[in-house]
Design a binder for these strands. Structure first.
Lengths: 344, 344
DNA sequence: TTGGTCTTTGCATTCGCAGTCATTTCCGTT
DNA sequence: AACGGAAATGACTGCGAATGCAAAGACCAA
């Protein structure tokens, strides 16, 4: 086992410095090196110092791959996000990544082109033996079950397990849409339109349904069209709704901010409606452009910091103790009363 | 070596199905299983079929960690990005991630709070024995050298190696700013202001210098203030510049779109200037809000798809053949003539 | 049937480190 | 000086898959 490195030339400057190299240089055994790098291990201070010095000189960093193999802890967490270009997720991703880093956990990122590409990605997730996963994409029941079978802790972000109990962190759609709808209704709006998301989007459906239900509670039926969550969909949706309502639309509920912004621009610059005088528009998410002077969108802001914080905490808990039972944490969003809608 | 799994209960449904388990079920050796999963390996078709079937039944996925240990290829690439909230990077990140996925490479994401947190992150990069890295953050010469010493292929995104030759992909700042400056000058603007980035930002400095130099070429000296690349900095910068120029400023060059947008909003809604009649404003990047109706920003759009494509290609090349010499690829941006500036 | 070539297959070893166990060292006590 | 217990250290094994090598089959020609 000592003749494995016949040619120990300038090994220090190249890749592949192992604990054996450090051990030899420090005049100790490989075990000692290993211990020197583990927190509460039994090493004499002097020895540790010698080892650390040797390690530094050689540029040694413990091989996380090998560590992972033996300890069965990769310190990797998979983050699966459907559309990163969504303007809302980058913030979430950055928060999650930084929080996880603080706990010594690295992020393996999977970005899906379509929310339905999950399956192929999962194979990779299993292969890398991640310690856990945070998912903001739609998972089928089978996929959910797969996580549990493989013993990979999972936290869903802004969606709940459909048919299976799973740990999740969400912003309350019902509460949010209720606040918006109630405000709009009380302010006297009568002709409502809703721009939803694509049919395969979880949040899209949930928010749209929340709005529809709350309107029904007031005895109001709204026109409904679907968008793709993007800027263009907002304008297009608005135009369609205007036709459907004989131009009478006076309250537009968009299930995300981006579409609301698109609708505002179209209303003002293309259709020639005044916002909010002729038409009230609301969004959902609270992305940064919503607060820009030009928009001042009335929307529901998701408490991103608290949500990511909760997601990370829940995940880490479950990595430590895999048997913690599922829990849903539902956060109320904050109503941002901007100038895009007349609310009461 | 066979008695290592004394209790083989419902092993199929739990984590930790190994190639030995599959081998036993398929009645072959572990080597055979290994080969069945490698592309051009020597296995009889019938054998492979049996193995694949067994693997499927057990839910076996090769352990990428173990593979990485022995093959010395983790199939991991580190992506280091300074501020993900920058509105421009999410698009880049999504593109990079998806392109890399297509090549069977996984992304280890490192998101920096400040561009100076690189050092701690690098330790982790070394530990995970990534096959390569794409970096959009400022690296010191020592850090650059560290990559090369450790034999980790590196591609810089929108910055070049300072003092050391490194592979990089950039959008040409000189060309871009030149187009903007020339257009503004020829349209008769006389009083110029520039809002740059934080002093520790590479692109910020580069674009600002490009603009300053080009203006100097026309014999014009501009006022200069720094911003933080965010929306607020745009408005604040504009106000400062207005004071500095006795309210005479008629051309504002922002080194990114977000600040330009902030400046536009402030100009119109706070200061009461008409854009572009009283004041021309330009940005840089070509983020999506720049094209929104409300802004129609005059800016330089980075060819993100081509740039990410190039970055990935260069990195993969260097992973295959580590000795390829450094190359800089400089892409010209596309001038978007919006309605935020009078150009000629 | 025999020999030769090519393809399949299994054995044994290895990657780098963690952790178990046995051994040694070091101290404080009596 | 001798002993007991704690602390420090080293030898060794195994995590799960890849691979060189040799053995075994398969197949064809003579």
């Amino acid at each position: 086992m000592a003749k494995k490195k016949p040619l120990d030339q300038t090994n220090q400057e190249k890749t592949g410095v192992t604990s054996y190299d450090v051990a030899r240089r420090a005049g100790v055994s490989q075990s000692a090196v290993s211990r020197a790098f583990r927190k509460g291990a039994s090493v004499a201070p002097a020895t540790r110092a010698r080892i650390v010095e040797a390690a530094q000189a050689l540029g040694y960093e413990p091989n996380a791959i090998a560590q992972g193999l033996i300890t069965k802890r990769s310190n990797l967490v998979a983050i699966i996000i459907s559309n990163l270009t969504n303007l809302y997720y980058p913030e979430v991703l950055a928060e999650l990544t930084q929080r996880l880093s603080q706990h010594g956990v690295r992020v393996l990122l999977f970005s899906l082109a379509a929310e339905s590409d999950v399956e192929e990605v999962l194979g990779q997730v299993w292969r890398y033996r991640v310690d856990g996963a945070i998912v903001a994409a739609r998972l089928s029941t089978d996929q959910l079950v797969a996580f549990s079978n493989r013993g990979v802790p999972l936290v869903l972000y802004n969606r709940v397990g459909e048919g299976v109990p799973v740990a999740s962190v969400c912003c309350d759609s019902d509460l949010g849409e209720r606040a918006l709808v109630d405000g709009l209704v009380q302010a006297g709006h009568t002709c409502f339109g809703i721009i939803g998301g694509p049919a395969d989007s979880y949040v899209g459906e949930e928010r749209a349904n929340a709005a529809i239900n709350r309107l029904a509670h007031h005895g109001i039926k709204a026109e409904f069209v679907r968008g793709q969550f993007d800027y263009e969909s907002g304008g297009a949706g608005l135009k369609t709704l205007m036709e459907l309502t004989d131009n009478k639309l006076d309250a537009l509920i968009c299930v995300n901010d981006l579409m609301a912004i698109g609708a505002m621009d179209t209303a003002r610059n293309i259709i020639g409606k005044r916002v909010p005088n002729d038409l009230s528009i609301t969004g959902f998410d609270g992305v940064s452009p919503a607060t820009w002077e030009a928009y001042q969108l009335t929307t529901v802001r998701q408490p991103v910091r608290r949500m990511t914080q909760a997601a990370v905490a829940m995940l880490l808990e479950r990595i430590e103790s895999p048997d913690i039972s599922p829990e849903q944490r539902l956060f109320a969003g904050e109503l941002l009363s901007g100038r895009s809608a007349r609310l009461l």
